[in-house]
Design a protein around this nucleic acid. Structure first.
Lengths: 327, 327
DNA sequence: CTGAAAGCGCTTACAG
DNA sequence: CTGAAAGCGCTTACAG
């Protein structure tokens, strides 16, 4: 905390050990070919001075940092499970993970970060139109999704059609979609697939509400539905919206799932234990985070991209908030 | 992505602009005393080469990084709201925020980080017994809590006694506590205050379950309670545990809140819209995050600690999961 | 108002 | 197996 105990440098360690500073450097790199005696002397000096290398100086010289950055689209959103898996995967491979949020131009933030020399690679969870030309690898989540799900297929799309098909199979004919914010690629894609599936199966959509991601927004949108809308099935873009929708439905005297079915997305813990327990989409965020980081690291090292998870990352989970409609 | 467009250096910009490299450096620092003509030439060169400074080199020379680190106790836990506020506060003050998790010895991780030269200050949300002697400021969350709540008072304690008092006022006599993991200071403190308040008011505690933080653990603990336990009030250490407790209660044919009251902690969004809506403790995580970062930055700059929030950061929120017990 | 010199703390060839 | 030299890309006094 004080300024006085300025940290020991490699020179001081060298002096104390009676060797040159690059011998200390060798010690730090666990160089195999050191005389045991020399190694011992250095080791003692390192311990005596409580020496730890200045990583900034090291990076400056090596042009490597062993750090990766994840760029988030907004400072108000944090994909916890994905990040935990990403971080664990990075650590296991010897990298530290930094989190930065875009705020403003994602392209500019990425270019800046790439040129700053502070990281060896970047994973962007924020959309990037044209990746800037950089010295280090940039992996954009959208790109990744595309590769992962096969070209031409829309990210996250298939699960929506499965939901609609399932509910239609139960007998539902009139649907409503709580879509989330249209500036999110995933939200836009799901809406498209929703509308397309409704059309393909000859069903009826009472409407689509572009909302934010909050439970309150779900509540408000459903509370605003006219009594004669005829909607018996609500498909929400996340579990918060679904919980809001359920509460709005019961607050107006209807039952879930007897009168109205509600489907969520994300398989959040609280929704699993709510009454009715939420039918939802379980997304394998861990696999997403892990695979994205492995892919990025492979690129940094110039290795081929690792194999991707064979199974679909989205799984429908049917619980208590969905059932056949009333006659 | 390719290796060829190695980034422009300050020397190349200088050469193109026909000035010395430290004039470019001045330009970057927005030095006021530059001839407009010179400034213009440098500006043009910077744009032409798409130059962005190497921040590692800058840090090396200035011994500053404009980065702060937050140390988390575990890679499996992430306080989203606190971190969002912390990050926003840091950015507003010109700092970038790094997130690292302790894994192993928190003290060692902090010492390493402090000596690495990679950050200017550290906020530890993980417990630290004896802060290592470092060149940069370390702020430990526990320390901070202590200062914030007044010496001698236990962090988070008062809200628990308020909850017990409130439920006792409603007529409850037999309580149960879902305590969370005992290796968390906050969990331990709340348990202590729970037991102390029960004793002080002459109430009865059927027991305390040391759990993890999951809804499943809350479910299991309550499902395991004997039918004749007489418990009418359950106080949970977080909303997940509370949701699990509610579901276990209703699954055995009892009603919440008519037969059993359940109190949560954290005011999570989904619990607000559940049925019954969760009574809980709203913790001002934003204020916690903001104040911790402001405190840290003030220390870095050698300024006095900023004023703390005048009001209590914990507020009880009474909703539908609590009511008087049956006679 | 601008330039020549020194140096931040490391590592990487290169000698010996 | 170890040491002397050079240099990573910046900024900070110091001259002029």
């Amino acid at each position: 905390m004080t300024d006085e105990p300025r940290r020991a440098t490699i020179h001081q360690v060298a002096r104390l050990a009676g060797v040159s500073h690059q011998t200390v450097s060798r010690y730090l790199r666990h160089d195999a070919g050191m005389k045991p005696d020399t190694r011992q002397r250095v080791d003692a000096a390192v311990k005596a001075l409580d020496y730890r290398p200045n990583l900034v100086a090291r990076s400056m010289r090596t042009r490597r940092t062993d750090r990766l950055a994840v760029v988030l689209p907004s400072p108000h959103w944090f994909p916890v499970r994905l990040m935990i898996a990403a971080s664990a995967t990075a650590h296991a491979a010897g990298y530290q993970l930094d989190v930065v949020s875009a705020e403003g131009s994602t392209e500019e933030r990425i270019a800046e970060l790439a040129d700053s020399g502070q990281v060896d690679g970047i994973l962007s969870l924020a959309p990037v139109d044209s990746p800037p030309d950089t010295r280090i690898p940039i992996l954009v989540s959208g790109t990744y999704d595309q590769e992962m799900h096969g070209a031409g297929e829309l990210a996250d799309g298939s699960a929506v059609s499965e939901i609609v098909e399932h509910l239609a199979g139960l007998g539902h004919r009139t649907f409503f979609h709580l879509a989330g914010p249209p500036n999110y690629t995933s939200a836009r894609n799901r809406k498209l697939v929703y509308l397309e599936t409704i059309a393909r199966l000859g069903l009826r959509s009472y409407g689509v509400a572009d909302t934010n991601w909050s439970a309150q927004a779900g509540y408000d949108a459903i509370a605003a539905l006219p009594a004669d809308s005829g909607v018996t099935a609500i498909i929400a873009a996340n579990d918060g919206l679904a919980m809001g929708a359920i509460r709005a439905t019961t607050d107006r005297g209807l039952r879930v799932p007897e009168d109205v079915s509600v489907f969520g997305w994300d398989d959040e813990e609280l929704g699993r234990f709510a009454t009715p327990a939420l039918s939802t989409v379980a997304v394998d965020r861990e696999a997403q985070g892990r695979e994205a980081i492995l892919h990025l690291i492979a690129t940094i090292r110039g290795e081929p991209a690792p194999a991707k998870s064979p199974r679909d990352l989205n799984q429908l989970v049917f619980r208590e908030s969905t059932a056949p409609p009333p006659d």
